[in-house]
């Protein structure tokens, strides 16, 4: 099995209510709230894909997509 790497943070802006839980608990400070109080991944390269933002998002608005390193794309 190849090593895992981050593909993207899928954040549904319509669903996000800007509570800030994901920002508060991210161990690597990957996420921030933008001017519209929506979560955005500002430092995706630091993501360790623990997925705690996804699992704790009360709005079901975040998906952390990962892929194996040897996969194309």
């Amino acid at each position: 099995m190849g090593k895992l790497k981050l593909k993207e943070h899928l954040i549904g802006r319509n669903w996000c209510k800007g509570c800030g839980i994901c920002v508060h608990f991210c161990p690597k400070s990957v996420l921030e709230l933008d001017d519209e109080d929506k979560a955005v991944a500002v430092r995706p390269e630091d993501c360790i894909y623990c997925k705690l933002c996804e699992l704790r998002c009360p709005d079901l608005a975040i998906e952390v997509k990962i892929q194996k390193e040897d996969e194309n794309e």
């Binding site: 319509n14 669903w15 209510k17 509570c19 699992l55 009360p58 709005d59 079901l60 608005a61």
Partner: peptide, 26 residues
Amino acid sequence: VKQYLRERFFPHIWCPGCGHGIVLGS
């Protein structure tokens, strides 16, 4: 999880930060 959701009713009615959405996700 979206495969189980009736997405047309989202965003849901719960307040920002309400724990109930986390329970739903779990």
